[in-house]
Every structure is written in C-alpha cells, then in structure tokens.
Nucleic acid binder design. Structure first.
Lengths: 172, 172
DNA sequence: TTTATTAATCAGGTCCCCCTGACTAAAAAT
DNA sequence: ATTTTTAGTCAGGGGGACCTGATTAATAAA
C-alpha cells in the first residue's frame, strides 16, 4: 500500500490535469469555433463515431447494444450524425428491418483525426518519462477495467471489446 | 524530441484513460443514482462550487469573471445551486447592487468530498510509480498552462489563479 | 396462418451547459 | 441633479446526452 501523501498528491495532479485539459479544450473550441465540432468521444455522437471506426456497417441495434444506450438514443445520435454528413443510413437487404450505419468519408476522416492527434505536451517529456507514463497508465487502465468488469461484466464485454482494442490498434 | 512510437503509445493510453474513466463514472452514476449528483467539476455548477471553495463569498460578477462565463450563465448556475441548498445568495450591504454567493455547510461538504476522493486505482501503484506519475503530470500540466497562457492570458489569470492553486492546497 | 418477437420510428420529456437581448435598480461620474 | 456605468434579472434559444411510452413494419415461431 503506497504512501498516503504521495497518493493525495497524485490524485490532486490528476484532477488538475482534468481541469487544465478541459480549459485547453474550451479555449480551442472558442478559438476556431469549428461549428459544433467539439464533443467528447466517449458519449453520444462521439461514441458512435468511435465504434463505427472500429467496425463499420453496424446496425443501429448493434450500436445500441455495444454502447449501452437505448435504441431511441442511438437513433437520435445517428440522425444527428447523418445531418452532419458523418455517417449514412441504409436499409439492410438481408433483413429489411435493420438499418446499417456506415461512416462517410468525412466521418472516417473526422474520427481518425480526432483520435490520432498527439498532444503537444508529450513533446516536453523525455523518452524515459514516456515509458514510465505508458507503464503507469497501463496499470491504471487495467485497474479501471477490472473495476468495471466486476461491477458490470456486460459493459466490459460490449464497450471495452468494441472500442478499447481499437485504440490500441491505432496507436501501436 | 522524444521517440514518435512512444508518443503515440502514450497518447493512446491517455485517450484510453479518458474513456475508461468515463465508463467508470457512468457505471457509478447508474449504480447509486445519487439524484443528479454527478457533474463535471470543471463546468457550470461544479466550476462555481470549486471556485467558492477556494474563495467563499464572491459576488456573481466576480464568479463570472473568474470562470469566464456571462453574468447570465452564472446566475443560472447559482440559482440551480441555491435550489440544491449548496450555496446561498445574499445582498451586499456595502454595495446593494451586488449579490454575495456563499457555500452552505452542505455545499462545503459536497465540494470537499468531491475533490478529496482518492481513486482506488492509485493503490495499485508503487511508491516509485507514484513519484514518477506526479513528476510527469506536473510537467504536463505546466505545458498546458503555458499553452493556455499564450493563447489567452486572461483565462490563465482568472481561472488558474483562482482554482488550480486551490487544488494544490487540498492535496499537499 | 396467426401470433409473437424484433428493429426502428415518432412524440414528448428531463436535465445540462451556455449565449444574446432587453430591462431594472443602485452606485459613480459629470 | 442628471447622465452613465455596473450588477443582476427575466425571457428566450440553441445544442447536447439520455430516457419512457406508443406505434409500425418485417421476420421468426407456433
């Protein structure tokens, strides 16, 4: 069990990181004002884009399952993405109840641009620090996955399997 | 300039961290369903609570300035917090145009509980790793502060000075 | 074939963040 | 004493993340 003071210190830094990140995003957001471009990749429309960029051509139902949302919420977000020309809807020919959702070229570009960007502040770290950071984050993420898995195995199955692995592919 | 592969890897881990964090929050949120309890400390109502827990008894105008929001937004969030009994409004006797906002006891407890919580996953790190993490986050946060400062010195003045230092006090 | 079950849809709602415009009341400046 | 500035308010709006309930169309099961 690690030293309490160190833990508090680290916890504070982590919160500070969240805060300053949020501020920087906010600034960028107001600077370019890229017409509603900015939204968390882990919710709503962003989540869908992320899931599709791993497995394109899912049905709405599949999306809803993987992302732990209701079919109605999913439909709403998909429609909004269609309006923004990021995805397309198309009736399945096999089962005409199903609607297949696909990324448009624009959507694909948006999604990969979103997650392929490497924050500038990483340039200020040494190779050693990067290694340390990677090792530490791996541990932290695994702890969090465990936590999620024990509390709700389904989520783990659905979301982690369907998106987390994707991130690894992208960055490794 | 550090190794590109390492940077990509670290960037991926960071994104993954954000994602899995979000998931864990979501889970906790649905589990307890603590009546609308959950909101980001870096926006809207949470931001105000955070600012007040450093400097209590600010006027709405002051809050708006420090948090880079319009007076109207500030008023809205303050009113919501009043309804939740987290802050109180009170006309200034010195300048009767001003409204002084103060944390209630409940508000104070809520705010400190919010930021004093130490994530469980830090227990899985060794003392050495904690030290490394602290050092790295310090660097990263400073880079981000610089970035914000160069792009908009006002924000830096307002928000960083009024909240970030507070976090340090809390955790050190 | 008739009865489920399934995939989607529409309608409507809750709450959040955040902004502009128009207007009052109080203090400061002229 | 009369303007002007300042701190707040109300009204209204835009967009976002979600959800429940009711309904339709298509497929699978009885």
């Amino acid at each position: 069990m690690p030293n309490l003071t160190k833990k508090r210190n680290a916890a504070g830094k982590l919160i500070e990181y969240g805060m300053v990140q949020h501020m920087a995003d906010d600034l960028a957001h107001r600077r370019h004002a890229n017409k509603g471009d900015q939204q968390s990749p882990f919710q709503g429309q962003g989540k869908i884009l992320l899931a599709l960029s791993q497995t394109d051509g899912l049905s709405q139902k599949e999306l809803a399952n993987r992302l732990n949302m209701t079919a109605q919420s999913t439909a709403e977000f998909v429609n909004k993405l269609v309006k923004k020309n990021l995805v397309s809807k198309e009736k399945s020919t096999v089962d005409r109840r199903k609607t297949i959702i696909r990324l448009t070229d624009h959507g694909r570009r948006t999604a990969s641009k979103e997650s392929a960007k490497i924050p500038a502040y990483l340039d200020d770290l040494t190779d050693t620090e990067l290694d340390q950071l990677i090792a530490i984050l791996t541990k932290i993420n695994n702890s969090l996955y465990d936590e999620i898995h024990t509390e709700n195995p389904n989520w783990f199955e659905n979301f982690q399997r369907s998106v987390a692995d994707h991130l690894r592919d992208w960055f490794l």
